[in-house]
Amino acid sequence: MKILLAVMLCGCVLLQDGPSSAEEKPQFDCGNKETQMEMNACAQEEYDAADKVLNDQWKLTRKAMADWDKELEEDQRGAETALLQAQRAWITYRDNQCIAEGFQARGGTLETMLNIVCLTRMTKNRTQELKDLAEPLGQ
């Protein structure tokens, strides 16, 4: 029993002293990238920011389409549904397009960055498309 208690205590100490799963990722100077890892990390930061803007715009555009649907006769509605289907199709297209672009450096250290740069470019373009859809509807 003493051995079991000792093992449990050691395990607790190891868990306390170990790195937490919520540890912050390393910060890089994105104005002075020197390694592929830094380039990838900085590209990921840019993508994450673009994805946040897209998600914010998505909410506005979806609301605009839902509001538009409410103004139409029931048999004329479908703007929000069409938008949702288009967004789902776009996500599939974006992901596969960016995988295809990554093949330029297949198996190399540059492949990840090519994929992330593609995701960022396409996400920014889609954000503008969503803005263009919402503008005429007052959003």
Rank of each mutant, 00 (worst) to 15 (best):
Q36F: 05
R106I: 08
S20Q: 09
F103A: 08
L119W: 13
G102A: 07
D95V: 01
D95F: 03
D17M: 04
T123N: 12
I99T: 05
E74H: 03
C98T: 01
E71K: 11
Q128F: 05
F103W: 07
L9V: 07
A50R: 03
Q85C: 00
A22Q: 10
L130Q: 08
S21H: 11
D75I: 15
E135Q: 12
Q104G: 07
A134L: 12
P26M: 08
T120A: 02
Q128V: 11
K25A: 15
P19A: 12
T127G: 15
R88H: 01
D132H: 08
L9C: 10
L84F: 04
A64L: 12
C12F: 13
L110W: 05
T35K: 08
Q139A: 12
A86F: 02
R77F: 01
V53I: 13
E71S: 14
K25S: 14
T109Q: 14
E101A: 06
Q87S: 02
Q139G: 07
R77W: 01
Q57E: 13
L60Q: 10
A43P: 12
N115C: 09
L60H: 05
R94K: 14
E46W: 11
A86V: 00
N125W: 11
N125G: 06
N115V: 13
A134W: 11
N125V: 08
L130W: 11
K131L: 05
F28G: 01
L83M: 05
E80C: 01
W90R: 03
W68F: 15
M39P: 00
N55I: 01
E23Y: 13
D132G: 08
R126A: 10
M113Q: 14
L110S: 15
E71H: 04
D67G: 04
K131I: 09
S21F: 15
T123K: 15
D51L: 04
T112E: 11
A22T: 00
E38N: 04
D67F: 04
P136S: 04
D95G: 05
I91C: 03
K25F: 13
E45Q: 13
W58R: 13
G102W: 03
M65D: 02
M8A: 13
Y93Q: 05
Q27A: 09
E34D: 03
N40W: 01
D69M: 04
A66N: 02
S20N: 05
E135C: 04
K2G: 00
A79Q: 01
G108F: 11
C42S: 08
C10H: 08
A79M: 03
E101R: 12
L137V: 09
G102C: 06
D67L: 02
L14R: 00
D56M: 09
E73C: 02
E111T: 02
A89S: 10
Q85N: 07
E74L: 06
E38V: 07
C12E: 05
Q36G: 07
L14N: 04
L84Y: 00
R106M: 12
Q57G: 07
L110D: 14
Q57K: 15
E38P: 01
D29V: 07
Q44T: 11
E80D: 09
M1H: 04
